[in-house]
Each structure stands twice: as C-alpha cells, then as structure tokens.
C-alpha cells in the first residue's frame, strides 16, 4: 500500500532543539527538531510513566523526559540504557520546509496500528 503523508506544518514552526505537538485520534505525536535541522516524531508519552516527551529538553538526537529524566532516542523511541522501554515512532518526511508524517506507518505503543494488519 502506498504511504500516505499528512502535512503538519513547516520546520520553522518547531523551535531548534525544541518540540511541537500534533494531535491525532490515536493520541498526541511530538515532533522534535535537532540542531542539525532534522525532524523526528514520537508518540508524546514516555515509556516510563507516560510523561509528555514534547516538554523535555532536546540534546543531540535525544530528548530528556521532563518527569523523571529518562533519555529517549528520537530516531527510534528507545530509552537509553540502563532504562528500558520504547515509545512509538512515526516516519517523518521533510521536503523543502514542509514537514509531513506517515501516521499509517506509525508503530504506536498505544492505539495499535492503523493499518488492517494490526502490527503494534
């Protein structure tokens, strides 16, 4: 099936080393922008106790959760060792300044998959 990209805004709307939230029926998605101008999208819920990752401090390609300081990899949603866990991540495409996400390809930890196949 062809990937469906949903436009969510311009990269300039996301502060450098910051984050913005996109609300979806499956929950909030946090979009992060690194110093190198890359954009990543994670489910806005920390694998620890669902802290809103969008409110954390972004450094390198990681974000530190605002609630109890777990560090999460932006590219994968994986918690940095020794903490263990993973939050859902969503494919992102930046074309020019436009940012789009592929919700259908997302691997969400809650709400499951939006495709019929039901992968999580």
């Amino acid at each position: 099936m062809e990937t469906i990209w949903t436009q969510v805004g311009s990269i300039d709307d996301i502060p450098v080393l910051g984050s913005r939230v996109v609300r979806t029926p499956d929950g909030d998605i946090a979009l992060f922008r690194t110093a190198a101008d890359e954009v990543f999208a994670l489910e806005d819920a920390c694998p620890h106790k669902q802290g809103p990752l969008s409110q954390g401090i972004v450094h390198g390609r990681r974000v530190t959760c605002p609630l109890h300081n777990w560090v999460i990899e932006l590219a994968t949603g994986e918690a940095v060792a020794p903490d263990e866990g993973r939050t859902g991540h969503v494919p992102v495409r930046v074309e020019g300044r436009n940012v789009a996400i592929a919700l259908g390809e997302a691997k969400l930890s809650r709400g499951g998959c939006r495709k019929a196949c039901g992968h999580v």
Binding site: T6, Q7, V8, D13, V22, R23, D26, L31
Partner: peptide, 11 residues
C-alpha cells in the same frame, strides 16, 4: 505562542 499551541490536529 508556539509553546502553547498544537502544531496541527489531524485525522
């Protein structure tokens, strides 16, 4: 302002 607004609402 961006701190308090959603970037987008989709779906």
């Amino acid at each position: 302002r961006h701190e308090f607004n959603l970037l987008a609402e989709v779906g």
